[in-house]
């Protein structure tokens, strides 16, 4: 069983002040630390767990600049057999383009797989599109928000998908397929520095990304960046307990946690 995992290196912005520069044209992420996209981490772990259980091998592919090698090393340290870097130094923002590049790559190299795992979304652009788009291009079945793989047979898998309000559904999907993995599906193993160092000894193949970009054009124009309306501390609800509680219930409803 072969599982391909797409994994992306992203800037970790959660703790940082993200600076918009050049009049909104750019984001300054130069000072941010980079890491593996959290969702992809779960996807890699799930892939590794799956092959540990059912045999086969995991191939990690990353589409990004040369530093993205880091996430491949990490994947290898976690248990991936090989790492392939589709090197594209300018970031690709449009998920449709990313999916097309991946599609071309897979086709060109005739990569054989039983399943492709991706994270549900990337922390940076938060599109959540790549997996589904790629599946459609490949004309293979797809499921997103996968929070459990219940069954893995030669021709199909049964997965659990997360729905809203604590609900989930179980679907059967034919192989080969693309699954977008949701966080919480597993507990990704810790990758030690020693592990990463060891993984560095496994060769990662690097491919020139521009080779897979023929005839692909982005139809999304990124005009500028802006800050969301500033939030100023906690919005205090009424001083009167009765009305405060009523407001509170409204908020809970709005957030969809209480109907």
């Amino acid at each position: 069983m072969n599982i391909v995992v797409f994994t992306k290196r992203v800037a970790a912005a959660q703790e940082e002040e993200l600076k918009i520069v050049r009049d909104g044209e750019d984001l300054d992420i130069s000072k941010l630390p980079f890491k593996v996209n959290d969702w992809d981490n779960y996807a890699v772990e799930e892939a590794v767990k799956t092959v540990e259980k059912f045999g086969g091998q995991v191939t990690a592919i990353s589409l990004g600049d040369k530093e993205s090698d880091e996430v491949l090393r990490r994947s290898i340290a976690m248990g991936a057999k090989e790492g392939l870097l589709i090197r594209k130094d300018d970031p690709i923002f449009d998920p449709a383009v990313r999916a097309n590049v991946a599609f071309n790559f897979i086709k060109k190299h005739n990569i054989v797989f039983d399943a492709i795992f991706t994270g549900v979304q990337a922390e940076d652009d938060q599109f959540g599109v790549f997996g589904g788009y790629l599946a459609a291009l490949l004309k293979i079945p797809f499921a997103s928000m996968v929070i459990g793989i219940d069954e893995w047979k030669t021709d199909h898998v049964v997965v659990k998908r997360e729905l809203e309000g604590g609900m989930s559904e179980r679907v059967r999907i034919g192989i080969p397929c693309v699954l977008s993995i949701q966080t919480g599906i597993n507990e990704p193993r810790y990758v030690s520095i020693m592990g990463i160092r060891k993984a560095s000894q496994v060769e990662r193949k690097v491919f020139d990304g521009s080779e897979y970009m023929e005839n692909i054009r982005s139809s999304i124009e990124l005009l500028r960046w802006s800050y969301p309306p500033k939030k100023e501390g906690a919005k205090l609800l009424s001083a009167d307990i009765d009305s405060a509680c009523r407001e509170l219930l409204e908020i809970l409803k709005e957030k969809g946690v209480y109907q």
Partner: peptide, 29 residues
């Protein structure tokens, strides 16, 4: 640690330290 078999809270602290040079993962800046 090498086998990756550690609790998430410890793991988080280590990953944070790797990333932000402090175990809480607070911004280095």
């Amino acid at each position: 640690v090498e086998s990756g078999d550690i609790s998430t809270s410890i793991q988080k602290a280590l990953e944070n330290t790797f990333l932000q040079k402090n175990p809480w993962g607070r911004a280095r800046s």
